[in-house]
Amino acid sequence: MSRAALLVLADGRFPAGGHAHSGGAEAAVKAGRITGASSLEEFCRGRLHTAGLVSASLAAAAVLGVNPMELDAAADARTPSPALRVAARKLGRQLMRAARATWPSVELDALAREFPKGAHQPVVLGVTARVAGLDAVDAAHCAAYESVSGPASATVRLLSLDPFDATAVLARLAPELDRVADQAVEAAGRVVDHGVDALPSASAPLLEIGAELHAAWPVRLFAS
């Protein structure tokens, strides 16, 4: 594997559309659930162990060569909110474009042909990692990290939170993030043997409900 390729893919400036999404932070700020650094940390921790774990497992399984169509259907089944399914596919489509320009490959072209309007973002992330020569654990780390870095940077904009405090939240979550990535890789290994039903299905009802409410707001800063 190439460690530098992992940095390219995990870089917050990788142009794959993430900047327009708050990972549920905008809805949580409005509802008063995120008011500062410590509640941001709790929010991120919850997201990491639910949506983050599922995303990381999907991404890791894609690296191991599990069929993206099956993974995409499994992602749908694990995402009750229609608004979140739309957001995940939009982000998947945007990542697909960036990935095809960055790591041109027949595998990504085939995925783009299969899903012209986008597959779930973690599935695309896994295929991208695979094409970039990365391992399952790398893709799992990327997905797990994105599940918390998006809300953290969005909260900096939404609450004018001190950016150093937001970054310190991410650093404090790092050991848990490593554990979630390991769990995801184990789950992905089970998927290879037993099919996609072996994927974790941890969910956070408030994230799903918040996403539905958010999608109906007439005025908002973030797309999700």
């Binding site: 400036r13 142009p15 794959a16 559309g17 993430g18 327009a20 939009k90 489509r93 945007q94």
Partner: peptide, 8 residues
């Protein structure tokens, strides 16, 4: 910097 949504 990140033109993907507009391209779509």
């Amino acid at each position: 910097d990140d033109i993907s949504a507009n391209l779509e």
